[in-house]
Structures are given as structure tokens and as C-alpha cells.
Design a binder for these strands. Structure first.
Lengths: 176, 176
DNA sequence: CTAAATGCAAAGCTTTTGCGCTCGT
DNA sequence: ACGAGCGCAAAAGCTTTGCATTTAG
């Protein structure tokens, strides 16, 4: 259901009973001077508690499960806003829907199991150095990057005699 | 209009007058036993001549410019088919539309200039080795990968005081 | 109090699909 | 001849938006 490295939506990170103090994401919103409505607080909380890569529908589902005073249009408006503010990063793992990832988790990449849809997050220092040097090679400064590996658990696959699966279209597991 | 490494739609690769012999992509289609209709031949030709990463609308535009006997639905159906057959690879550079890239060009990655939308293709052996080893580290065999670098020409950017641009949403240049 | 945010439903975009006709093989 | 492919237009997803109402600061 989730990526292998950690479990799904986790409890608040060691604060008191989760009811009235600002979540991680909410704090970021306040820092950037956003007007904090009840809906935004709610969405911020859902995002703070999520450790996967939910799409808008999933965020909406989790939000109304907690409070039910949000419309999906507001979720769309909010993730867009938070992305513009650099609080969220939008991802595309195939499947047509955008997935969202809090930026404060630090840079990481994804290894997607094409058979199960499982998403594994990873970091790699050597890779970071390498892409910096590649960008530099062309006279560029890196603003953003995206590395996604799609793989299978088994040995090496035959060179695809006939691909029935659309590459990049994960089977809708993590976050969805 | 195109990426910096090479020019736009090129002339047929040294064959006779381009009218009646199979293009590079058409040959691949025949190899896989696809029924070659006039429309498919036309689309195959457009793909063979393209060196950028056109989306469906752009393919459609180029196709009707040559012949005008295609509907956009057929272009959609054809790129989907060719992707399933492993002849095309679908890409997402942001902007909502899928872009297509003939697979026989060999594996390469993309460096996108976020200011101009220019797409630079590159390869990097060290990177290939690295991702293989990363996949292996998790017990996976790589089926596909995706590396996209988004950058700017200038010096290092300040840590984004307020991002107005949606990351990954290129300003529609290459292929569009 | 004023500008910004929300809800709802309608509209926008890209992509897919049902169906009758056409065309490769 | 027959099944695959085509065109057209309608429909399906995901996302955005207009407008009247509510709310944060």
C-alpha cells in the first residue's frame, strides 16, 4: 500500500494530543504569511501526517474523514498555492493525477516497483554530485530535478517481446 | 524552438526523394507486424523526421501539413500503440501534455531550461552505472528510468523567496 | 471592514471511446 | 471477405474558474 521504507500516515510527531497546535506544514504556511483558514489548517494537517505521495482526491478523502468541511476545489486551490510557495512539490508517477510531496522532507527520489506500484524513497549523494556536474557541464544551475527508477524484483527481464503495460503507469498503489 | 544540441525536423536520412520508401519508424512498425495504413505511415514519417519531443497536437499539426488525411483520434491511438510496442517513449515535461520520443534514439535524459523551455538531451555513462547500482541495492532490476534536470543559465539562484512559476511547467517551447 | 478564501457547479483540457464505414492483408 | 483501423463526435478524467457568500486579519 505504501512504500517499503516506512509506514503510512503517521501520528503527529510527538506533540500533545493533536487538536490545536500548528502542524509542521501549517507552521510553514504561517511563515510565508498565508491566511490560515480552517480548511487550510486541515489540509496542512493531512499533509503533515502523510508520509506517502497522495493525489488530490486522496488528500480530499483524508481531509473530509477528519472534518468534512472542505470541498475538493479548495484542496486543488490549496495544493497549487502551497506548491507555488515552495511548501509542496508536485510529482508525476504516471496515471494522470499529480501527487504531492512536502518539500521539507528533503530531496529524495523514487524507485517504483512496476509490478506492485510500491514506491521506495531513496537519497544518493553520489547522484547529487553527478547531476550538479552534468548541469554545470552545460552551463546550468540546477533548479529542480527528477529521478525515477522503475524496476522489478526479479532477475533481468527479456528485452520486452511485447510490452502490454504502459511504462510509467504505476498500478495505483502508494498514495492513491 | 528546439533543443540546443541539434536542429529541428530534419530531412530524410539520405534516401531518395521522400515519397515511397519506409521511414525509420515505419520499418520498426513493420518489424512488429503492425498493419500499415496510410495514416500510420504518415505518422511514422513525422516521427522519423522529428528530433524534438512533440506532443500529440504537434504531431497532428505536422501530419496534416504533409497530408491532411488524419484525425487527431488516430494520432492518439497510434502513439499509444507505438508506445505499447516499445517504439515510442512517453515523456512528461510538465505542461499537461504527453510528449513522445522514438525509443530507437537510445537512452538519453533531459536538461530543461526553465526560462526558455529549451530541452537539451544528454547521456552519461557514470549515471547509468549509478542507477543500476541503486536499483541493485534494493534488489531491483531496472525496467525504465527517468532523469530530468530543470535548470537556469545564470549563477546560483537565491533560495526562492517566492516562486511564481510552477516547477516542471516548462514554458512550452521544444516540440510544442 | 476589505481583500481573500470557499463551495458549487459549470467549463476547460487532454485523452479515450462507441459506432458505422473503410481498408489492409 | 473479415477483422483491424479510421473519423467523428460524444464522453471521461483531472483540474480550473465564475460567482455569490463567508471569513481571516
Amino acid at each position: 500500500m505504501d512504500h517499503a521504507t516506512h509506514t503510512h500516515a503517521k501520528a503527529p510527531q510527538g506533540k500533545g494530543p493533536q487538536g490545536a497546535d500548528p502542524t509542521r506544514i501549517e507552521r510553514l504556511c504561517i511563515e510565508r504569511g498565508l491566511k490560515m483558514t480552517g480548511q487550510r489548517r486541515l489540509i496542512a494537517r493531512v499533509l503533515s501526517e502523510a508520509e506517502d505521495h497522495p493525489d488530490v482526491e486522496e488528500l480530499y478523502r483524508r481531509a473530509i474523514a477528519l472534518d468534512s468541511k472542505v470541498s475538493i476545489a479548495t484542496v486543488y486551490r490549496t495544493v497549487r498555492l502551497l506548491e507555488e510557495k515552495g511548501i509542496l512539490e508536485r510529482r508525476d508517477f504516471g496515471g494522470g493525477r499529480s501527487r504531492y510531496d512536502p518539500a521539507d522532507r528533503g530531496h529524495h527520489h523514487h524507485l517504483i516497483d512496476v509490478d506492485t506500484g510500491t514506491v521506495i524513497e531513496f537519497e544518493d549523494e553520489e547522484h547529487e554530485r553527478l547531476v550538479q556536474s552534468i548541469a554545470a557541464r552545460y552551463g546550468f544551475t540546477l533548479v529542480q530535478q527528477r529521478l525515477e527508477l522503475f524496476g522489478k524484483k526479479a532477475p533481468a527481464p527479456a528485452p520486452a517481446p511485447e510490452a502490454k503495460r504502459r511504462p510509467g503507469t504505476a498500478t495505483k498503489k502508494d498514495g492513491g
